[in-house]
Nucleic acid binder design. Structure first.
Lengths: 333, 333
DNA sequence: ATATATTTTACGCCATGGCTTTACAGGGAA
DNA sequence: TTCCCTGTAAAGCCATGGCGTAAAATATAT
């Protein structure tokens, strides 16, 4: 899992105005400038997640994510960036973000629903939230602010949401209100931008139908290409991306892959693996990731992975790693 | 722990209009009519909690508690009933209910706060809620309705709350709305009646200052008499009544008993016991009560008692009972 | 390809031993 | 009475073995 490199470049460049030199940030984040100069290049998710640590240290700004997002008027670059700026209105922009956003940042899922109001939910992967809670918060603030800024920049009008809902604790609410221009609620169940139907109907100044169709076609082809992996790889993707407190059942996974359970089992058998095998791999990966945050207790990791019994988790862990959790934590320090 | 017997008599008499004969209810509840004919007599808490089971079976009414409460215009009887009807206004009524209510129904705590609005919270003991969730719901509905009905009856005006908040799932909301005459919210964190300041300032038709002072003096003396137990008994009372997910610490208990930690330890030593000893007794008692509901898992009981580790709970349980939890559940079936 | 039946495996639940840490017990001085 | 200090017991955390059950694997018939 990774993040489009140029998003990081944008963040670092914008942060220069907060007293943080571009080169210093690269160095402190372990990122070479060439890694983030090309919109096709992806940066490993942990490197991307942790850029906020030096950013915070250097700026001493508890709202560094929000402030950097304020200064970002182009969230994504390259092909997807061109696609978005060619959309006809804000609504289509957000739909394209939802459809292709995961190609640029697979650790974030964008969900969009339109009823009386339009709701865009930004869902970071739970593993990221658990392992690096504070950097995840800055990243989310950044995304929200950058999304709104980008919408305003492309439409030539200040787009004001109906309200913002944030899943974390309040922190200097007046800064949020000032930037978004609407009420902001903390401690909500998810991170959401709620927009009016008028707002999402706002046309873009940069709209270009033929360019839109061109870029959309290219993106769709690219997405299809990425998807033509082995069944095992696709299954891993599904299990990992749709992980929310428990591994999906084989029925759910088969449905997500548009095949029957028995067919999925046959395909996996052809590839010398099984659903149970893949599910174990995903659990192991998430467990080991979370164990690298020493403040996360073993019982929490067990709960997160869907085990209702700690002894069962211990046994499973031993079977994956041939080591006990404590022993593995010792070796990884 | 018990409940003022005449409250049950009132419930049974009111339920007669729902097709349930008084004698039948007594028989099905294992309660002799003499037990509930005297306002000074108390009925064991489990008998009192379980009266709703036959009531529900006979009436087949999922809102039996609410409906019986609707027909009850005198919540408490005897001395405390006279005290309440002698109050000057609704506000004083509720204060007396909070102060002396636990003498009539120790398994319920009434909490009252007045800010912009007046909030009366009715908190049933957690052990009751866990062991008998459905009867607890009926009892709570009954209490809420009876409290409002009693207020209206004593003041000669229909007292309409600002809103009602209930901690359980929605069930035929229109019946609640119709009776209370205000909005009702379910799935809230506690059971509360929210009243306006105008409502609580409503004077009682039955107000009598000299009778109030007489009954208040008698109740205060009686409460003081009940309290002049051994330190161990008082501590048990405090630990049990203030149990909310964990046993209070020795500091908290000492503060509740108006003495220092060291003084409490000395008093208990004089009575050949200790805080740890008393705390263990309370934990054991709650654990055994909850284990009698087979749908409550051991891990839930462990959590409820404040253990963050199931193996520690198992060990403690063995030390209290000389039996494993499963073995004890087998013998008690 | 699906449906059914049988087999296998991993999770849920139970119980216990071991080690560390922390809350309490209790003595004693002021 | 308060304050301080030392010792101890119980809770927190770790790890493992055992047994039953349900989900998944797989064989087989259609």
């Amino acid at each position: 899992m990774a993040l489009q490199g140029t998003v990081i470049r944008t963040i670092f460049q914008t942060a220069a105005s907060f007293g943080a030199a571009f080169d210093t940030l690269c160095q402190l984040s372990g990122i070479r400038p060439e890694e983030i100069s090309n919109s096709e290049n992806m940066v490993e998710w942990e490197k991307a997640a942790l850029i906020w640590v030096p950013l915070f240290k250097l700026s001493e700004d508890p709202l560094i994510g929000l402030h950097v997002g304020m200064g970002t008027d182009k969230l994504l670059h390259g092909m997807i960036g061109f696609l978005i700026q060619s959309c006809k209105d804000i609504d289509q922009c957000i739909r394209m973000l939802c459809r292709y956003g995961s190609m640029a940042s697979p650790m974030v899922e964008y969900r969009y629903t339109v009823n009386e109001v339009a709701t865009l939910e930004i869902a970071q992967h739970q593993m990221w939230l658990m392992k690096y809670p504070e950097p995840a918060r800055h990243a989310n603030d950044f995304l929200l602010a950058a999304v709104m800024n980008t919408c305003s920049a492309l439409s030539g009008k200040r787009i004001v949401p109906l309200r913002i809902e944030l899943a974390y604790k309040m922190r200097n609410i007046s800064e949020y209100r000032k930037f978004f221009g609407c009420e902001v609620f903390f401690n909500k169940e998810a991170n959401r931008i709620i927009l009016s139907k008028e707002a999402i109907a706002t046309p873009l100044l940069t709209s270009d139908q033929s360019m839109f169709e061109l870029f959309n076609s290219i993106m769709a082809d690219k997405q299809a290409l990425l998807a033509s992996n082995s069944t095992a790889e696709n299954l891993k993707q599904v299990l990992f991306m749709q992980f929310k407190g428990r591994i999906p059942t084989i029925e759910e996974a088969a449905a997500a892959l548009n095949m029957t359970v028995r067919h999925l089992q046959r395909r996996l058998l052809e590839e010398q693996t099984s659903f149970r095998n893949i599910a174990g791999i995903i659990r192991k990966e998430i467990a080991i990731q979370l164990m690298q945050n020493p403040s996360i207790k073993l019982s929490e990791i067990s709960d997160i992975l869907g085990y209702s019994d700690l002894t069962a988790f211990r046994k499973a862990f031993k079977s994956w790693t041939n080591a006990t959790p404590k022993a593995l934590r010792r070796t990884r320090v």
